[in-house]
């Protein structure tokens, strides 16, 4: 079985349907957005609207700003010009508590998966539950299933620094989806894993997308994009010359 029989994710289905009912609402809306770290503009004049349930890939040369773009999409960075609206609300008007709420609705797999090194892998995966005040003990079964699906059962009690690169990425993905978020942003989620594991990670993301979740994956891996295109209607965005373009059918 490829997809985790994860009740935590399945239980979110009614909520997602409610989201879909709000026709025309965008989960992420970028409007003439630009970003600069202080030097010249890294990203310019970017407009994009993500509808609930869409599936996107984000590509571009190294250093083109993919990670930066994703950070703008989950409120870690505030655009230097233009607007970024998450769930209809402008990031610029959010206080830190609202950003925290956004993080619970947006699961992020970071390129440099950061964990709390003094907690076990299982505790790290459960961390979003813990910080949002959910009863971790009550979700024990879901947690176990998710850990098992990611192939981390035998490493569940290990500490993050003891994991391999691929194990870290699997743990990061598990942590990103445990809250059953509306949006999943994955930054090079298959950078360190073999093809079989890439396939499994992709399958999870595709399955989550089928349940109505919006997915965006930043990757260099053209093979992964091709594999996804056979299963899901995925659009490919490309960052080139500071702009965001919709890549053609050449992939």
């Amino acid at each position: 079985m490829l997809f985790p029989p994860c009740a935590a994710i399945a239980s979110a289905a009614p909520i997602l349907q409610k989201d879909k009912a709000v026709a025309g609402a965008y989960v992420i809306e970028l409007d003439n957005l630009a970003y600069s770290y202080g030097g010249g503009e890294l990203l310019s004049d970017i407009s994009l609207r993500l509808t609930p349930g869409s599936f996107h890939f984000l590509t571009g040369p190294s250093g083109s700003g993919k990670t930066t773009f994703l950070k703008l999409c989950y409120g870690a960075l505030v655009p230097t010009a233009g607007h970024a609206l998450l769930f209809g609300k402008d990031v610029r008007q959010m206080d830190r508590d609202e950003i925290a709420e956004i993080r619970r609705r947006v699961g992020v797999v970071h390129q440099d998966c950061q964990f709390l090194d003094h907690l076990t892998v299982a505790e790290n995966i459960a961390l979003p539950l813990m910080v949002s005040g959910r009863d971790v003990a009550a979700e024990e079964v879901n947690l176990k299933e998710l850990v098992a699906w990611c192939g981390l059962t035998h490493r569940a009690d290990a500490l993050p620094p003891e994991l391999s690169g691929g194990e870290r990425q699997r743990a990061a993905l598990a942590r990103a989806v445990i809250m059953s978020p509306d949006i999943i942003l994955a930054d090079e989620p298959t950078g360190n894993v073999d093809w079989e594991m890439s396939e499994r990670l992709l399958s999870l993301l595709v399955e989550l997308n089928r349940m109505g979740k919006t997915v965006m994956i930043a990757t260099h891996d053209l093979g992964l994009i091709r594999a996804a295109k056979t299963r899901v209607q995925a659009r490919v965005l490309r960052i080139a010359k500071r702009r965001l373009q919709l890549a053609g059918a050449d992939l």
């Binding site: 993080r103 964990f115 910080v131 949002s132 809250m179």
Partner: peptide, 16 residues
């Protein structure tokens, strides 16, 4: 600071 950054990434409020 690192721990705080990770906690924020997973949605912890300042209060928590």
């Amino acid at each position: 600071a690192q721990v705080i950054a990770v906690l924020r990434l997973v949605g912890a409020r300042d209060d928590f």
